[in-house]
């Protein structure tokens, strides 16, 4: 259950989007998020919504997975939208009480804010649904390479990231085991006051930390015995390939940018 939340729910199927290089996916989805903030009227929002929908359809992933991406954030969205509606002023006043008011401008702003959230979440969900976390880590490594010039240990950071990803399920299993062991001794994690529940977490964390340190030591020895010396004198087994489709995706994004700025003029 926990693992699902952290792993971004990668859906292993085959689609045009799945096959894109993780670097282009990562950069383009970040770029799109910035782009969303440039939309300023109904037409531009509708245009971005249409492109997002088209991308979602291209992933061939069932829509319910996208809904699962939005659901955990729904309260934040609703709260922000409500604050926008209630606090922004301008245009016709429909209702008003003390400092609160509902105005036409407020409603419009509310809808815009909602659209922004919705589009950003959908696009980043496209990234996590179609790219395994490991490949995202590879993309980060590859994109960070220029930082090698200012002595940032990019390769070490990338290896740490990939080892961290690899150990998440292991440590989750371990947590479950420790919790079961405590339950067998009569600990109740799901009832009692908040303070009591937080207190019952401490006896989980301590054995978990101890075992994580032991694992780290074992792992370091194993890595050393397999010839790991750090640094950049290593060849790579997983390589990223920039294909024609990636270039097309970039051109497509440029076209979307052009379209958006034309619509802004309306």
């Amino acid at each position: 259950m926990f693992t699902k939340v952290i792993f971004g729910r990668y859906v292993p199927i085959d689609s045009v989007i799945h096959r894109l290089d993780p670097r282009s996916k990562l950069v383009l989805s970040l770029y799109f998020i910035v782009l969303v903030f440039f939309a300023n009227n109904w037409q531009s929002y509708a245009f971005l919504a249409a492109t997002t929908l088209a991308t979602i359809l291209l992933t061939k992933v069932q829509l319910k997975f996208f809904w699962e991406g939005i659901r955990p954030l729904i309260f934040i969205i609703i709260l922000t939208v409500l604050l926008q509606i209630v606090f922004s002023a301008g245009g016709t006043v429909y209702w008003h009480w003390g400092i609160f008011s509902i105005t036409s401008m407020g409603l419009v702003n509310g809808v815009y804010v909602f659209m922004r959230f919705f589009l950003i979440i959908c696009m980043s969900t496209v990234l996590t649904l179609t790219t395994p976390p490991l490949l995202i880590a590879d993309a980060v490594e590859s994109l960070m390479k220029p930082l090698l010039k200012i002595k940032v240990p990019v390769y070490e950071i990338a290896l740490m990231l990939s080892i961290a990803l690899r150990f998440i399920p292991t440590l989750m299993d371990e947590t479950q085991k420790i919790m079961n062991a405590q339950r067998a001794r009569g600990v109740n994690f799901s009832s009692g006051s908040l303070i009591k529940r937080v207190k019952s977490i401490v006896p989980i964390l301590i054995p978990l930390f101890i075992s994580a340190f032991n694992r780290a030591e074992d792992l370091a020895t194993a890595m050393e015995s397999r010839g790991y010396r750090g640094g950049d004198h290593r060849s790579k087994f997983r390589i990223l390939k920039w294909r024609g489709a990636d270039t097309i995706a970039c051109v497509g994004m440029a076209a979307i940018t052009a379209g958006l700025f034309l619509l802004r003029l309306l």
Partner: peptide, 25 residues
């Protein structure tokens, strides 16, 4: 080594087998 989990460096089976080869360039 003894513990199967604590010597698995790679994120997948083939990545793990490749680890030592990567180290030797």
């Amino acid at each position: 080594f003894q513990n199967p989990d604590n010597q698995f460096v790679g994120a997948t089976v083939q990545d793990d087998v490749a680890f030592g080869l990567e180290n030797r360039n």
